[in-house]
């Protein structure tokens, strides 16, 4: 899922140029534009309690090294790369198993029929458990493809691999999720 900019809104490149020129408002627009996607990605990578801290660190690092951003990839792809590295660093530091993303009951798939809601919630819980069983790379690839709609080329940039390898990771992830759900 993406938050496309509305008509008339400046591009990321234009906002970065403005921010470099000292326009603090440009940073606000960029954060508001990309923070939702980054937070979704960080959540899918298993961060819960420190999610906001990771998202904040992602932006602080990105703006701190914005001079190194060559615009060969999109700003969002670059933010995903930074967020992923932060998640990996934290996972290594904590030596903890990535927890399942908490299920928010207020966002049930079908909120009208309690039985449907229960089934949907159970299905989602199993699916989350299946995703939790993926490798870190498979989880990142699966999330970026399914949730954010990134192309394999963009995903390859984020997880530092080739386009073909990203595709293989995605299909392996789908197969593993299927197998888990079929058990």
């Amino acid at each position: 899922m993406s938050e496309p900019r509305r008509d008339g809104e400046p591009s990321d490149a234009a906002l970065i140029a403005r921010w470099r020129g000292g326009d603090e408002r440009a940073a606000t627009i960029l954060v508001e534009r990309h923070a939702p996607a980054v937070s979704r990605f960080v959540a899918s990578m298993g961060e819960r309690g420190e999610l906001e801290e990771v998202v904040q660190d992602t932006f602080v690092r990105a703006f701190g090294s914005i001079d190194r951003f060559r615009e060969a990839s999109s700003l969002r792809t670059w933010l995903f790369s930074i967020a992923r590295n932060l998640c990996r660093d934290r996972a290594r530091a904590d030596r903890r198993a990535p927890p399942v993303v908490p299920i928010d009951e207020s966002h049930a798939l079908t909120g009208e029929d309690p039985l449907s809601t229960a089934v949907a919630t159970e299905t989602e819980a199993r699916l989350r458990a299946a995703i939790e069983g993926l490798t870190e790379t498979q989880r990142a690839v699966f999330t970026l493809r399914v949730t954010e709609g990134l192309s394999y080329r963009e995903i390859a940039d984020v997880v530092e691999t080739t386009e073909g390898a990203a595709r293989v990771h995605y299909h392996n992830a789908v197969r593993m999720v299927k197998e888990y759900l079929d058990e």
């Binding site: 899922m1 939702p36 937070s39 979704r40 960080v42 959540a43 899918s44 999610l51 906001e52 993303v101 299920i103 928010d104 966002h107 798939l109 989602e124 699916l127 989350r128 995703i131 699966f142 999330t143 399914v146 949730t147 999720v177």
Partner: peptide, 9 residues
């Protein structure tokens, strides 16, 4: 998966 992972914290 899309429905489950697309909720924005």
């Amino acid at each position: 998966a899309h429905a489950a992972l697309s909720r924005t914290p």
